[in-house]
Amino acid sequence: MSGSPFRQSLALAAVLAAIPLAPAFAHTGAGVQLGLLSGFEHPLSGPDHIVAMVAVGLWGAQLGNPAIWVLPITFPLVMALGGLLGVLGVDLPFVEVMIAISGVALGMAVALNWRPPLWVAAVIVGIFAVFHGYAHGRELPDAADAVAFAVGFVVATGLLHLTGILLGVLVRWEWGVMAVRACGVLIGCVGLYFLAGAVGLA
């Protein structure tokens, strides 16, 4: 070590002063924070997920009561079953393709203002929910905190539905009907782009 003892003391003093003497906590909650954050970011990290979730809310709002609440309440429950398949490591084929198709199909349903019976809409949304849930569920075993991760992605998914529902409220106005259908077209295009990528065309 070079330098005068004074300088050495000064350097040592500086290092010691910079060390924060924080209390030691056994439960830092770091796992919960990381789990919440990574779970919340997971559905938001893929535009294919985002547009499909917004489309569920949009379609529900477009179909009106009771679809406006049946679809967003059913979705997380069916998504959980898909998540279970992911957690259990079940090999579900065509996950990325089906997620992309969900954007195309739900976008088209909104764009064309398709009004099937409620059970048909619920079944369609439910099938797609399984694949979206599967994609999230695959990440669950590696999460810093499984409960926090699940809370994060379920809340993010729910907020995306809510975004779609709030946008869908525009159907109360004449111009809003067209605006919502235009959103459907946009969602369908995004879904199509990801579908092309999933099948190796883009």
Binding site: L81, L84, V87, L88, G89, G137, V147, V151
Partner: peptide, 19 residues
């Protein structure tokens, strides 16, 4: 809807726990 979120969390983490 909030209840369905809680149920979804419970179902998935229960599955993970059992798996």
């Amino acid at each position: 809807a909030g209840g369905s979120w809680v149920a979804a969390v419970g179902i998935m983490v229960l599955g993970l726990h059992l798996a």
